[in-house]
Write a protein that binds this DNA or RNA. Structure first.
Lengths: 190, 190
DNA sequence: AGCTTAACGCAAAGTTCTTGCGTCAAGGGT
DNA sequence: ACCCTTGACGCAAGAACTTTGCGTTAAGCT
C-alpha cells in the first residue's frame, strides 16, 4: 500500500493529517492544482514541509491519498425496488461523478505513483462494494443476478475506460446503455 | 495536446528529441524510474536541463511523451484467417504487453498530467486502429462483425480496467474469455 | 546568399527537497 | 497516577532541482 499513515492514529498525528488534507482541498479550490506545492500546503496546514515529506514522500503520494479519500462513496446505492433500476441509477451517478473534471483529476491522482496499484485498487474496491450491495439486495428479492465481476467488466470498466482514455464520448445515456446490454445479452439465463 | 514539439522538426531539434528520449529509456533501464530527474536525463543526452524544461515542461510531461511513443504498436495485428482467432491473439498479446510492469508504467505515465487526455487518447486511438484492421479484414472475408466500439467497450476496456485498478486478476485466459463473451453474447445476430 | 526566428547553451537567482538532531507527545507498562 | 519507549514533529543547513534573462546558433524561407 502507499504511505498511508495510520501507524499511530492518536491525537497529534490525526490532527496533522486532517490539517494537511484540508489544506490540499482548500488550495486546490483556490489556486488550482498546478499551483500546489508541498511548502505551500505545509504553510496552509500550519506544519513544516519536512513533516509532509516524511509522512507522504512527495506531492503525488499526498494527492493520491487525498484522492482516495474523496472517491470513497458517502452513501450506499439507492434502493429503487429493482435490480435494473438500481444499476442504472447507480451507474449514471457514478459516471456523472467520475467524468466531471474533479472526478477525472482524482482518478488520475489515485493512479499515479503507485506501482502496486494500492490506491487505485481501493477505488475499485469501493465500486465493487457498491455493486455488491445492489446485487445482494436483488438476490434477496429473488431476482436473477449477474456476477459482480461481470458488472465490473462490462459496466464499470467501459465507463472508466472512456473517462480516462476517450473523454468526449460520455453522457448519461451511455451508462444506461451498458446496463441494458448487461440485461439483454450478458445476464445469466433464468 | 501535450507539449509534443514538432514545431520545427529539422535537424537539430530532431537530434535533441531523439537524444533525450534515448536518455530516458537508458536511464530507466539502468537506474529505475525513481532515479530519473531532468538534470540527470539532460546530462546523459548531452543537453542542458533548461532545454528540456522549455520543451517538455516537467518530468511528467516528458515521461508521457516517451510513453506514448513506446505504446505505439509496431506491427499490424496478425492475420490468422478468422475474426475470432485474430481477436483472441491480438487481445492476448495486448494484455500481455499492458499488464507487464513496464507496460503498466507507460500507461500510467501517459495518463498523468494530461488534463484533456491527449496522450491517453492517443493510446486508445492506437488500440482502436488495431481493432479496426482486424474487423475490416473480417468484413472482407464476409464475416459478421461487431462495432469497433463494442470491442473497445467489452474487450479492451475490461482488460485496461484490470491492468490499472485490479492487478492480480489477470492472465492470458482472461483475454480469451472476453473475446468468447463478445462472440457468444454480444455479437450482432446474423 | 541573406533574413527571420525558433531553439539551444549558459549562468544566476529562486524554490523545492533532503537530512541530521533535538524535542514533544502518544501509547503502553509498572 | 507516573514513567518509559518510541514514533512523529520542528528547525535549520545543505543539496538538488527549477525558473528565467540574455547571448548565440542554426533551421526554414525568400
Amino acid at each position: 500500500m502507499s504511505p498511508r499513515p495510520a501507524v499511530r492514529p492518536g491525537g497529534r498525528s490525526a490532527r496533522v493529517q486532517r490539517a494537511v488534507h484540508d489544506a490540499v482541498r482548500e488550495l486546490e479550490a483556490d489556486q488550482g492544482r498546478a499551483a500546489l506545492t508541498i511548502p505551500l500546503i505545509a504553510a496552509r496546514a500550519g506544519v513544516t514541509p519536512s513533516t509532509i515529506y516524511r509522512r507522504w514522500g512527495d506531492l503525488q503520494d499526498l494527492l493520491a491519498d487525498v484522492a482516495v479519500e474523496r472517491l470513497r462513496p458517502e452513501t450506499p446505492p439507492a434502493d429503487l425496488g429493482g435490480l435494473r433500476q438500481d444499476l442504472e441509477a447507480w451507474a449514471a451517478g457514478f459516471l456523472e461523478e467520475m467524468s466531471s473534471p474533479p472526478g477525472r483529476a482524482y482518478i488520475r491522482d489515485a493512479l499515479t505513483g503507485d506501482p502496486d496499484a494500492g490506491n487505485a485498487g481501493q477505488c475499485s474496491a469501493y465500486a465493487l462494494q457498491q455493486v455488491e450491495v445492489i446485487l445482494s439486495r436483488a438476490v434477496e428479492r429473488g431476482e436473477h443476478v449477474p456476477d459482480a465481476d461481470t458488472v465490473m467488466d462490462h459496466v464499470v470498466a467501459p465507463m472508466m475506460y472512456r473517462v480516462l482514455f476517450r473523454p468526449g464520448l460520455l453522457d448519461a445515456q451511455y451508462a444506461r446503455d451498458l446496463v441494458a446490454t448487461l440485461f439483454y445479452r450478458l445476464m445469466p439465463l433464468p
